[in-house]
């Protein structure tokens, strides 16, 4: 069987209610909804455990507010989880306990991310090419001509027109902005790519080409991906397996065709039925 690349155990993120002065209460952990009945804290992700295997696309579906983004952004160290462990590549150390320098190294070399909102992923004050080059610079690329070559390579891989390299992100279409995020994410050959609603807000034909691109990247570069989407059509096309989230919890998981054809939970049956 294939080896795993990322193992997540008990990942929990709770946002304490204002009156709680940054603390959670004992009832928070017993809560079954995404608001603690006792103190009103928001339980964004509750004890999520799952494994990402090599070269697979793991889909995460669920309605907005179900904790999908918090989950991946915790794994990219954007958000500090309240509890939980995550292990990378069979290493024994919980990555949430690494120091900030070690975390930065993982972000630079092992992981890439494309955010739902391009403003989170791109610096709008520098050019498209500059955004991607930044990621190369932190990985100690120094030679100007090598950087240029790599940029061309990444632009071609993500089907970005080379003549837009010096343009600012704000002058590019939504689809191109997503491609730049992906080019940037791929810059240092990561093992894991996080894609948070990569196609939402794009019109259908742009969406379709982006999905093709993701599939091609996965097949060619053999990267493992976590793909967050509330769009079952997107997941059907790309995901090998799906995790279904509701109110911060993973309520079921399975092979993509199984989740779509034989969903077990009430909520998943509702989602699948409303798609058909």
């Amino acid at each position: 069987m294939r080896e795993w690349i990322l193992k997540v155990e008990g990942l929990t993120k709770i946002y304490p209610a204002p009156a709680q002065n940054g603390r959670i209460c004992p009832e928070c952990l017993k809560s079954t909804a995404n608001k603690c009945v006792s103190c009103g804290s928001t339980i964004a992700v509750a004890s999520a455990s799952f494994t990402l295997y090599q070269r697979e696309i793991l889909g995460v579906m669920g309605e907005s507010g179900s904790g999908k983004s918090i989950l991946v952004r915790s794994l990219y160290f954007d958000i500090i989880p309240t509890f939980g462990e995550a292990y990378l590549n069979r290493e024994r150390k919980n990555i949430f306990q690494l120091n900030s320098q070690e975390k930065r190294r993982l972000k630079n070399f092992n992981m890439g991310i494309a955010y739902q909102n391009p403003h989170l992923g791109l610096n709008f004050d520098i050019s498209a090419g500059g955004n991607v080059a930044e990621k190369l610079l932190v990985a100690n690329w120094r030679s100007h001509s090598n950087i240029r070559k790599r940029l061309i390579d990444l632009f071609e891989k993500t089907e970005l027109p080379l003549n837009r390299m010096d343009d600012f992100p704000s002058t590019l279409s939504g689809g191109m902005q997503q491609r730049i995020q992906i080019a940037k994410a791929l810059a240092n050959n990561p093992e894991i790519l996080f894609l948070d609603e990569p196609t939402s807000g794009l019109d259908l034909s742009v969406q379709a080409r982006l999905l093709d691109l993701i599939k091609e990247i996965q097949q060619e570069l053999k990267i493992s991906m976590i793909l967050v989407s509330h769009d079952l059509g997107v997941l059907r096309l790309l995901a090998d397996r799906i995790l279904v989230m509701k109110e911060g919890r993973i309520i079921e998981s399975g092979l993509t065709d199984q989740i779509l054809e034989d969903p077990q939970c009430h909520y998943t049956q509702l989602l699948v039925n409303s798609m058909l």
């Binding site: 069987m1 697979e56 090998d240 397996r241 998981s253 092979l255």
Partner: peptide, 8 residues
């Protein structure tokens, strides 16, 4: 068996 095994 686990889903991963089925995929394989």
């Amino acid at each position: 068996c686990p889903d991963e095994e089925i995929i394989d």
